[in-house]
Amino acid sequence: MAFRRFVSHKAAVASCGVILALSLFVILAPLTARYGVNQSVQAPPNSFLSPRGNAWLGTDDIGRDLYSRLIFGIRVSLLIGLASALISVTLGSLIGAVAGFRGGKFDDVMMRVTDLFLAFPFLVTLLVVRNVLGAVPWLKPLTGEMNSVRFIIVLFGIFGWMGVARIVRGQVLSLKEREFVEAARAVGASRRYIISRHLLPNSVGPIMVALTFSVVGAIIGESTLAFFGYGPQAGDGATSLGILVGAAKGAVQTGFWWLAVFPCFALIVIALSINFIGDALRDATDPRLDRGA
């Protein structure tokens, strides 16, 4: 039922195709990329070459191939998106389920905190949390250096759980009143058992939806940070979508359009595709639509 509804959503199916193809393409980066991430396409003069035969999407300020760098950048960005989304969804599902199920003080405090965080301008919270996270010495072994990819993953993992927690909490609140949960409680099942056996499995739909939106959130978040110079640093010339888009900022006024257009376009395609998938998942798993249709 849910699957059929998802498949009937044409844009989402196409998006799945796009994302799968893109993932395959960047996983096989050693084969699909034409140059190394830090390699010049030709001997100088090689900076700011417009798209041509030996550099399909042009070159950047120090003569590196934009096409190859884009592949490596998307690879890093997808990794950041997926890894941090997994962290935030795990955290958020647990916290949301417990908050929704237990109610009371814990729930109140949790929801107050998430309300507060979500009401604040996203970038401000992100930057402040980033700095705080980087300044706590005992977190160093977990987070690594502030400009590493690992740090960014942990940051978005910690940052993203609130949205997920809200969704899961809402789902759990409505499930809690349903007969099968009442029945489990009546026969004396433990709280942990009910949450893990009844509530979480029945929240798979909303959790999947939250997962897709967390992936987009982290990818865009990383780009935003990198755009303002707070992202992962390009050690050894490594790159991410955010770094590439950030470089575009300088290229605009001088008119090197390819440096702006291609990375921006890649980011839009990725964000749009994942959003389409999430939207279709939400429609497909919405139990309200099961009746009648």
Binding site: V252, W257, I268, A271, L272, N275
Partner: peptide, 23 residues
């Protein structure tokens, strides 16, 4: 609207600048 919410503001800013100012 869907495309609109999928485009982060800094992207639309860059593309608009490129089009309306530079080009």
């Amino acid at each position: 609207a869907f495309v609109g919410i999928s485009i982060p503001p800094f992207i639309s800013a860059i593309l608009l600048q490129l089009l309306f100012a530079v080009y």
